[in-house]
Nucleic acid binder design. Sequence first.
DNA 1: CCGAATTCGATTGTGCGCAATATATTTTTT
DNA 2: AAAAAATATATTGCGCACAATCGAATTCGG
Lengths: 153, 153
Amino acid sequence: MTKKPGILALDNQLCFAFYSVSHAFSRAYRQFLAPLGLTYPQYVVLLVLWEQDDLTVKEIGDRLFLDSGTLTPLLKRLETAGHIRRTRDRKDERQVRIALTETGRSLREKAEEVPKQVGCVLGLSFDEVRALTQEVAKLRGRLHDSAAPSETS
Amino acid sequence: MTKKPGILALDNQLCFAFYSVSHAFSRAYRQFLAPLGLTYPQYVVLLVLWEQDDLTVKEIGDRLFLDSGTLTPLLKRLETAGHIRRTRDRKDERQVRIALTETGRSLREKAEEVPKQVGCVLGLSFDEVRALTQEVAKLRGRLHDSAAPSETS
DNA sequence: CCGAATTCGATTGTGCGCAATATATTTTTT
DNA sequence: AAAAAATATATTGCGCACAATCGAATTCGG
């Protein structure tokens, strides 16, 4: 009965489709981000900070679905590059607050051109991009809920 | 004019949607693959081999959009685990042929249950999964074409 | 106020992804 | 056939992701 790859393969292809398109996007962004000395994960961290400055590591992680094991070294590299400052919170010494430097803020204009470049090759309309983004985000939510169905208090 | 995050953010959110849903899928698969001693990338390599056995490293890489820098160590781990055999091709000593062992073949049945489990939480119909998969694959194709527009000979 | 549980972040170790480079083997050119 | 170009894999180095663990700081329960 293993002669039914159809349904099984399809679900899988959806996962693989996301897996491979994610890498394809990463490569597409890389050619524009490399001149700025940024990787894609570093770029999305800056996107978060450009939207709201002075966040804790945890707040950044909540927005990006990343944990401290990923963010701590990444943020240290952003600090070394001069884009951010990391300082312990006075009120709660457990947290580290991340704030943009003037250098980090000034990178915003150049960085905002990047998705324009990449977006050109997608061949999607404004509405199509929005609909697809929302559909994918919905799936992500369901996967998260199934992975952590603990919030039943 | 930087007061227009709307359009810029949208393209970017599409990229981030893929980036984050890909990780979410990876985590969802992990809980089922870990008992089999497999990671998701190892799993997709086996999927390729279950579909067609005895491929070269390059052929696997072409199907998965991965290069030898990623595949060589991954395949060595699969070999150590006893799932595959790596042998130099007699005809062309440059290539390494990858063949499933009996152990690797026998893993198929259990592994095919995995996407069923994950698929349950998606809440999508067969047709919706198919349509979304194709749409995403189309985007991946466009990104690849734009990254390597060299085939103009 | 005190001890226990929780929260936050850092650290360690493993496994990708990929650029750059190296090496060996073919294939093509001359 | 010798030299040059192309091809296939391996290696190195860096940067994520993430599980597991740790230590320090805070909060909670009594």
